[in-house]
Computed example of a mutant assay.
Amino acid sequence: MVDLTQKLPTELLAEILGHASVPDVLRFKQVNRAFRDAILASPFIQHKIEPLGAGLEYNAAAGISLADSKKSFLQYRSNLNSLRPIEKRTVDNLRSNHGSDSKAGGGVYAIVEDSIRLFSLGSASRRIPYKE
């Protein structure tokens, strides 16, 4: 039996796969070499996949360019890795395990020291500012 995907140009396969959901793209990547090569060759598909590891999803409806979206995602990862808040506020009389940090939920992060600092890293695609 002939595999027709082997005869299609990589660019055409990438264009078709670019319309699939990320879970479907990841499944297609395992199907055959033509799909895998098309996915790996496409910056757009790679950018759709990359945020998934951070629990995010590329939102084409946000109306920002792929380059701006990628820049925003890299900034998000950088901020997350360094846990840099925009401003500092303290809340007194809270009990905590000193020196820990965690995700509190809903995109809110906490740094616990002598006080607890809560902050959001923001989202360019959803136009949510960075805030504490």
Rank of each mutant, 00 (worst) to 15 (best):
Y76K: 09
P85M: 10
Y130E: 06
H47M: 12
E50T: 13
A110K: 15
S42G: 10
V25C: 02
T10D: 01
P85L: 00
P43A: 00
D3H: 04
H98C: 13
E113N: 11
I128F: 12
Q30S: 05
K103F: 11
D24K: 09
S42Y: 14
V2F: 04
L13Y: 05
A61F: 10
A34H: 04
I49C: 03
E87M: 08
E57W: 02
G107I: 09
A20N: 06
K29H: 08
L52C: 06
P51L: 05
R126E: 14
S69P: 04
E15L: 03
S69D: 07
G99D: 02
R117V: 14
D114Q: 10
D3I: 01
F35L: 11
K7A: 04
N93T: 01
A38E: 00
P85T: 07
S82A: 10
Q30H: 00
F35D: 01
A34Y: 01
Y76F: 14
Q30N: 03
I49V: 15
I116A: 07
V2P: 07
R89W: 06
A38P: 12
S120T: 12
K131Y: 06
A61M: 09
K48F: 03
H98G: 12
A38C: 02
Y76M: 09
S72V: 01
F119R: 07
P9T: 03
L40N: 12
H47T: 10
L4H: 08
V112G: 08
R36M: 01
V31W: 00
S100T: 15
V91C: 10
A54S: 15
I116R: 10
R36N: 06
R127A: 13
A62E: 01
A104L: 13
S115E: 07
L52N: 11
I116Y: 04
L66P: 07
G106Q: 08
A60D: 15
E132M: 05
K29Q: 12
Y109E: 02
F119M: 08
P23W: 01
L8C: 11
K29L: 05
I39Q: 01
N59T: 14
S21R: 04
S21D: 00
F119K: 07
V91F: 15
L56C: 08
I64T: 09
L80E: 11
N93Q: 14
S100C: 15
R89N: 05
A62W: 05
A62Q: 11
S125Y: 06
V108P: 10
L80C: 07
E132D: 09
R33V: 13
L121G: 00
I111G: 13
L94P: 10
D92N: 11
E57M: 13
Y76L: 11
V31F: 02
T10W: 04
L66T: 15
N97S: 14
G105I: 14
